[in-house]
């Protein structure tokens, strides 16, 4: 993953729990230093180690930690240097999800090692949407769920996650989210 992800995780911990807690996480995670550069690609293991150690240190399960991280990632992206890009992606939750792959496509032309997930709207109605999330990575679906929640909050869109279904897949992750809107 790119340094920008690890930086965001650090920012979340420091914002909520302080520098001392983060240093404790760094020490326990075995990650040698936290001088992450946004545009540098780091091994996924670094992010996984930081996230799992954060969960351990905070005394919560990894899913909860990733959910919180997904929420934070979306919120901070909507307010930092990437705000223009994020805002251009859509004016509401459904439009944003529809354009998300397009945005990832464009990111891929700059972040050359970027291997983004894919989002597909399977069904769409006035009441809600069914969204498929596909990734070659494992275990990040709680992150996506936190991200979806934060997106709905951003667009002031009432949202209820009706079901989360793990779809059969040869490798990686394929989740199906049924979301009620209204």
């Amino acid at each position: 993953m790119y340094g920008i992800i690890n930086k965001s995780l650090r920012e979340m911990v420091i914002d909520h729990y302080g520098e001392v807690m983060w240093q404790q996480i760094m020490t326990l995670s075995g990650v040698p230093d936290d001088s992450f550069l946004s545009l540098k690609s780091y091994d996924d293991e670094v992010t996984y180690a930081l996230a799992s150690t954060t969960a351990d240190v905070l005394g919560i399960d990894l899913g909860t930690a990733l959910h919180a991280f997904g929420h934070h990632w979306l919120k901070s992206s909507m307010s930092n240097e990437y705000a223009v890009l994020m805002n251009s992606t859509g004016d509401n939750l459904v439009e944003f999800l529809n354009n998300l792959n397009s945005m990832h496509d464009r990111i891929s032309s700059t972040f050359l090692d970027y291997r983004p997930p894919e989002f597909k709207i399977i069904e769409q109605s006035a009441e809600g949407v069914v969204v498929d999330y596909l990734s070659f990575r494992l275990g990040l679906s709680p992150f996506v769920e936190g991200l979806l929640e934060a997106l709905a909050e951003h667009f002031a869109q009432p949202m209820e996650m009706v079901s989360i279904e793990a779809m059969p897949v040869a490798s990686g992750t394929h989740m199906r989210y049924s979301i009620n809107l209204g």
């Binding site: 930086k7 992450f36 240097e81 990437y82 890009l85």
Partner: peptide, 16 residues
């Protein structure tokens, strides 16, 4: 759009 993303990232890199 790619250019905008790149410029934004460059700014974060300078900050980094």
């Amino acid at each position: 759009m790619d250019q905008l993303l790149f410029m934004s990232t460059q700014k974060t890199m300078v900050d980094d």
